[in-house]
C-alpha cells in the first residue's frame, strides 16, 4: 500500500477516541480525530479521509444526523462512507429506517455501541470493501 487508508473518528468520548485510535493505528490505518460535530466537519474537508466513524450522540442526542446531512450535501465530501455508531435504538426507542435515513444509509453502515475495538476494525474493513465495489 503506497498510501495508508485514512480514518476520521468523531466522538465526544475521549476514551473511545484514544482507544480506537491506538487500535486502528496498530491495524495499519492513518487516524485523525475530532471531538465534536463542528470540529469533525472541519476535519472532513481538510483531511478528506477514506472513511468516517461517527458517533450519533454527541452534543445533542442526534448530532450525528446533522453531521451526516451537512457532509452529504457537500459535493467534495459526499462520497466518503460513514460508519455511524449509535446507542439510540436501545435508549430512546428511535430506530434507523431505510426510508428516513436512506440518504446516507444506502452506501453507508451503522453499528451499535458499545463496540469492541476488534469489531470496529472488522466493520471498517467491510464498509471499505463495500464502498470500493460501488
Amino acid at each position: 500500500m503506497s498510501k495508508k487508508t485514512k480514518i476520521l473518528l468523531v466522538d465526544n468520548d475521549v476514551d473511545f477516541i484514544d482507544l480506537n485510535k491506538a487500535v486502528l493505528e496498530n491495524s495499519g490505518f492513518d487516524v485523525v480525530v475530532a471531538y465534536s460535530s463542528a470540529e469533525g466537519l472541519d476535519r472532513v474537508r481538510f483531511e478528506q479521509p477514506d472513511l468516517i466513524v461517527l458517533d450519533l450522540m454527541m452534543e445533542k442526542h442526534d448530532s450525528g444526523f446533522g453531521f451526516a446531512k451537512a457532509m452529504k450535501a457537500d459535493p467534495t465530501t459526499k462520497n466518503i462512507p460513514i460508519l455511524m455508531l449509535t446507542a439510540v435504538g436501545s435508549e430512546t426507542g428511535m430506530e434507523f429506517s431505510q426510508e428516513l435515513d436512506g440518504y446516507w444509509m444506502k452506501t453507508d453502515d451503522y453499528a451499535n455501541k458499545p463496540l469492541l475495538p476488534e469489531d470496529l476494525v472488522k466493520k471498517i474493513n467491510e464498509l471499505l470493501a463495500k464502498s470500493a465495489k460501488e
Partner: peptide, 17 residues
C-alpha cells in the same frame, strides 16, 4: 463501562500493539 471493556479487550488481544 464500554470504555473500560474496550481498554481491557484491546490489552488482552493486543489489538493496540
Amino acid at each position: 463501562l464500554s470504555a473500560v471493556e474496550g481498554y481491557l479487550s484491546a490489552y488482552l488481544s493486543g489489538a493496540a500493539g
